[in-house]
C-alpha cells in the first residue's frame, strides 16, 4: 500500500468523474421520476407497481431466471475454467478463444439461432421425437426454458473468463500439494479454489446475474410477450404506454437487484474464506 492519498486520488478520480457526469447524473435525473409526484416526494410508484399481480409475477420470474442462470453459469464455469487452466499452453489459447468467440457474435444473431434450434422443426425437437421421448414435437419456444438457455449461452463466457483469469493466479503447486496432503476434491474446492478465486466469482456472478436481468433481446425474442421479464416490461412501459414513472420504478428495482446480488456474492465469498 502506498500512502500518498493525493496521488492515488489523482489517478482514480478521472474515471469516477467521467462516470458521474456523463452517466450517473443523467440516469439519476431519470430515476428520480420514480419518486416524484405532484406533491413532491412519493413512493406511490412502487406501491402501484407491486399492487399489480402481473408485475409481481414478472418480478419473481426475473429473479428466478437470474438466479438460475447465474448459478448454472457458476457450476459449469468452475468445471470449464478448471479444465482450461490445466490445459497445455497451446490448447489453452485455442479453447479460451473458443469460449470468447460467442461474445463476438451479436446477441441478436445468437438469439435467432435459438429460434431455429428450439423450433417445432428444429434439431432439439427432431432429437426428442427421434429418441421416442415424445410422440409429437413439444413447444419449447416462448417458454421459460428457452429464455433460460438463451441467457445462459449469452452470459456463460463472462463467468468462464472471470474464473479463468482468477484461477491462473493460483500458484501451480497449491492444488497438488493439498491433494498430496489428503484433501478430497470437494475440500480442495471449498478450502483452496473458492477462496483464491472469490474475486473472479464475484465479478463473474455479478456480470452474469446483471446481464440476465438487463438483457432485452433474448427474453423479447425467445420469451415473447408470454414470458415477460422486468426488462421487457420496462421496454413496454417506455415504448407503448410512455409511462416513465413505471419505467423508472422498474429500473430502480433492477438496479437494486444487481446491487443485492453483488453484496450477497461478496458475503458468500468472504464467509467461505
Amino acid at each position: 500500500m502506498f500512502r500518498n492519498r493525493r496521488e492515488g486520488l489523482a489517478l482514480a478520480l478521472p474515471a469516477a468523474i467521467f462516470s458521474t457526469l456523463l452517466f450517473l447524473v443523467p440516469v439519476a435525473i431519470l430515476l428520480s421520476e420514480a419518486f416524484r409526484s405532484d406533491t413532491g416526494f412519493s413512493l406511490q410508484g412502487y406501491v402501484d407497481f407491486f399492487a399489480s399481480p402481473l408485475n409481481r409475477s414478472v418480478f419473481l420470474r426475473t429473479l428466478k431466471l437470474g438466479v438460475l442462470v447465474a448459478g448454472s453459469a457458476a457450476i459449469i464455469g468452475y468445471a470449464a475454467a478448471f479444465c482450461i487452466v490445466n490445459l497445455p499452453g497451446k490448447a489453452r489459447g485455442t479453447v479460451f478463444g473458443m469460449v470468447v468467440l460467442p461474445l463476438m457474435i451479436s446477441p441478436v444473431a445468437r438469439t435467432y439461432a435459438w429460434i431455429v434450434i428450439l423450433g417445432r422443426t428444429g434439431i432439439v425437437n427432431d432429437a426428442i421425437v427421434g429418441l421416442g421421448l415424445s410422440a409429437s414435437p413439444i413447444r419449447l419456444l416462448f417458454t421459460e426454458t428457452a429464455v433460460f438457455l438463451g441467457l445462459l449461452q449469452l452470459f456463460l463466457p463472462l463467468m468462464i473468463i472471470s474464473l479463468v483469469s482468477a484461477m491462473e493466479n493460483i500458484p501451480r503447486d497449491v492444488i497438488p500439494a493439498a491433494r498430496v496432503l489428503g484433501a478430497s476434491w470437494l475440500n480442495v474446492f471449498f478450502k483452496v479454489i473458492l477462496p483464491l478465486t472469490k474475486e473472479g466469482l464475484v465479478i463473474g456472478g455479478t456480470l452474469v446475474f446483471t446481464g440476465a436481468l438487463t438483457a432485452y433481446i433474448t427474453p423479447a425474442i425467445l420469451g415473447g410477450s408470454k414470458v415477460l421479464m422486468l426488462e421487457t416490461l420496462l421496454y413496454q412501459k417506455v415504448n407503448v404506454s410512455n409511462d416513465f414513472v413505471s419505467a423508472s420504478v422498474i429500473a430502480m428495482i433492477l438496479i437494486a437487484m444487481s446491487f443485492a446480488a453483488n453484496l450477497v456474492l461478496k458475503r458468500i465469498a468472504t464467509a467461505r474464506s
Binding site: 435467432y112 429460434i115 431455429v116 423450433g119 417445432r120 422443426t121 428444429g122 419456444l141 425474442i221
Partner: peptide, 11 residues
C-alpha cells in the same frame, strides 16, 4: 418478420 420466420418453420 418474426411471424414470417415462425410460419416458415411451422411453429
Amino acid at each position: 418478420s418474426e411471424l414470417v420466420q415462425l410460419m416458415n418453420q411451422e411453429e
